[in-house]
Nucleic acid binder design. Structure first.
Length: 376
RNA sequence: GGGAGUGUUCCCGAGCGGUCAAAGGGGGCAGACUGUAAAUCUGUUGCCGUACGGCUACGGUGGUUCGAACCCACCCGCUCCCA
């Protein structure tokens, strides 16, 4: 259940209550695609980096180890030892990103496994069955993330199908819960807005799915190559049609600046692979902008990654040491980098919440939006 | 003592008369990454100049040739084999 506490213009400060705990929003979800944060963080580490929600992926876990294995092991919470909220993505994005050899039909999508190449079929029912087996706190609807740029006619027909798929997701998850087949009997379902960059499709689609009275609503299909300004415009167009009393999730976004700008436009929830991936590649967030720890200038730098950061990494290690770990290909470098970047993101959202609480989010946004995305 | 090899740009290593500032790795330097097929991918790496180009380079010194990293002679250094 979403509780709206306070607003500042379009920006919202809220709480999302779930059986696995309350999420203070706006919030950032830490991506653990295959039930592990890449770079070597476990559920125990997540406590140290202020993580509120973990995100796992239906498609990946279906392939490996298999959702039935996870179910038999007691669900994702027991499996990973993370007891907080978990959101599972539906596999819709993989249909989009694993572009080769896919076939989209009314029933669902057939595509090839990226692991062994075998044909996989996934439709709304399959996605719900898998997510019910995983036992996540929140299941995402099975959608099609249309590639960018898209033809209006194609996006329109895709939207119509995504609505039908959403209805089927709702029906199927209801059935699974009613029949006691869901590991988490309180599993929630979020719908996903699509419509590419076409305002009319975005609005019409949002209105249609809002009627289904789901537990939350996402904006999908953004940050897939369109200009950032275009992304912001689409959010502004859709936002007025999103239910006020439901949580809003912008899927796959983004940079610190993207997040602050999207909060200002009414978004509550985010997830992105960037902080972890950038960290694995030696790009670290600081309160002055982004640094590439591999750069020669850090060879003898005694300062922490970010001066104002109090994460376990910044409290203990120098840039010089981190640079060495990266140059020497020590996995510790990645682990520490990922810890820092995720702590940074979780702290960024924490600061944003504090700013909202105190009615100074606008100045907070102005101070950091461009700065944090800049490169040093 | 006799014989057979070998010496290339930061390193390893290709090259066997012109199209060679020299393949390919590694290393170095820098860049990309937005619901993760991603510990991945890209660029660059003799000096000077924006560029045309110029200069210095393939152990050393001479030589053959219009032209040499490549051919010849000697010298130096390594490696291996036989005594």
């Amino acid at each position: 259940m979403y509780e709206l506490i306070k607003t500042e213009h379009a920006a919202r400060r809220g709480r999302f209550h779930t059986v696995h705990g309350t999420i203070e929003t706006p919030a950032f979800m830490n991506v653990a695609t295959a039930a592990a944060i890449k770079g070597g963080l476990s559920a125990f580490d997540l406590k140290d980096i202020k993580c509120q929600v973990m995100l796992c992926n239906t498609y990946h876990l279906h392939l490996r180890p298999g959702d039935e294995v996870v179910r038999d092991m007691g669900g994702l919470h027991k499996f990973t030892r993370w007891d907080g909220p978990i959101l599972t993505d539906s596999g819709g994005f993989q249909v989009f990103s694993l572009a080769s050899l896919r076939k989209i039909k009314e029933e669902g999508v057939t595509f090839n496994s990226h692991i062994d190449g075998r044909r996989i079929f996934m439709g709304p029912e399959e996605s719900m069955q898998i997510q019910a087996n995983l036992g996540s706190t929140i299941a995402m609807a099975f959608d099609e993330c249309v590639k960018n740029p898209a033809e209006h006619a194609y996006a329109q027909q895709s939207c119509a199908r995504t609505v039908r798929w959403l209805q089927r997701c709702k029906t199927e998850l209801g059935r699974l819960k009613d029949e006691g087949l869901a590991v988490n009997p309180d599993q929630l379902l979020f719908g996903i807005n699509q419509g590419s960059c076409f305002d009319d499709l975005r609005v019409a689609h949002m209105k249609e799915i809002a009627d289904l009275d789901l537990d939350g609503y996402s904006i999908g299909g953004l940050a897939v190559g369109e200009p950032t300004e275009e992304m912001y415009r689409v959010i502004e167009v859709v936002e007025p049609h999103m239910p006020q009393n439901k949580i809003r999730y912008l899927m796959g976004v983004g940079t610190p600046g993207n997040i602050l700008e999207s909060i200002a436009r009414g978004v509550d929830l985010f997830d992105c692979v960037m902080p972890a991936r950038n960290a694995r590649h030696g790009h670290f967030n600081t309160w002055q902008g982004i640094i590439n720890i591999r750069n020669a200038k850090y060879e003898r730098d005694e300062s922490p990654i970010s001066q104002e950061c109090d994460c376990p990494v910044c409290r203990n290690f120098t840039r010089s040491y981190l640079r060495h770990l990266f140059k020497a290909d020590e996995i510790l470098g990645m682990r520490l980098g990922v810890m820092h970047n995720l702590y940074f993101y979780n702290t960024l959202l924490e600061k944003a919440r504090a700013a909202l609480d105190e009615g100074r989010f606008e100045s907070f946004r102005m101070q950091y939006s461009a700065l944090l995305d800049s490169r040093i």
